[in-house]
Design a binder for these strands. Structure first.
Lengths: 134, 134
DNA sequence: GCAACCTTACCACGAAAGTGTCAAGGTTAG
DNA sequence: CTAACCTTGACACTTTCGTGGTAAGGTTGC
């Protein structure tokens, strides 16, 4: 059905064929392949490619930013670790000395590492669940 | 002794003074300032600097990745736009229905919003408070 | 007042991201 | 069969990131 070759996809999306391959290597838009290995861009991929351009331009993002967002969404433990880092200094009791606070954070740090190293998280479970619900 | 100068902070965190300024320019760790403009690193900043190093190493991230995560958390509209892009019908397993996918993305969205909302409230205030007691 | 800090503002340099182009070879449509 | 595609891989170039340095000048502690 409706699937375009890389050159046709390039023409309708505004990206160069070279960049379409680069975007694929970045894990952002992965077209299907024909039996002989040709990239086949369907409507979904074309749509994503067009909106990707707008996204980058509107917020002045780099491709690597969006690639990182993708990692954030489905890399195991990464999201939790980043989340933990942002909220790290949040819950300090006011009546402790600076030394106590330092020790407290050190402990917290170790707890964070334990979390980051944990093998599975809810996000991944949900994804696996979804994949298996065929 | 609630705060260290940049050189002292560098010694206890492992970053160079140069990098501490760079990290500040990236918006990742912003120390308070003395009346004459000196950077004052408190326990909260020191802790964030230490955990930042671990975070980068553990997940092989770049500073720009974490900086982008920060933008994602507190730049209004950015998160929604990125989220929207990922939610758009794109290359995904055909056996996942669009409804399931959307519901899944919505859940992810809420998880991320939880971080975004939690960020940048009490912590900065508390840190600045701490700084002024010098 | 002097040494040892601190500030900002540059210059430089390697690594990585982003992008074009070309080469060698396989695929496809007429 | 041929022309016009496609593939991967490599070289090259520009821009940005990450990092160190250095210069000119302000601050601090003794």
């Amino acid at each position: 059905m409706a699937s375009l070759t890389i050159q046709e996809a390039a023409e309708t999306t505004g990206w160069s064929p070279r960049m379409l391959r680069y975007i694929e290597a970045s894990g952002l838009v992965t077209p299907a392949r024909s039996a002989s290995g040709y990239r086949l861009y369907g409507p979904a991929e074309l749509q994503r490619l067009r909106t990707l351009g707008e996204l980058l331009e509107r917020f002045d993002l780099a491709l690597s930013d969006v690639a990182f967002a993708a990692r954030l969404a489905d890399s195991d433990g990464l999201f939790e670790a980043v989340q933990e880092w942002f909220s790290a200094p949040a819950s300090r009791p006011e009546d402790v000395s600076a030394d106590d606070w330092l020790r407290f954070e050190q402990d917290k740090h170790e707890r964070l590492l334990a979390v980051a190293g944990r093998r599975s998280n809810e996000l991944e479970l949900m994804e696996n669940e979804l994949m298996e619900s065929r």
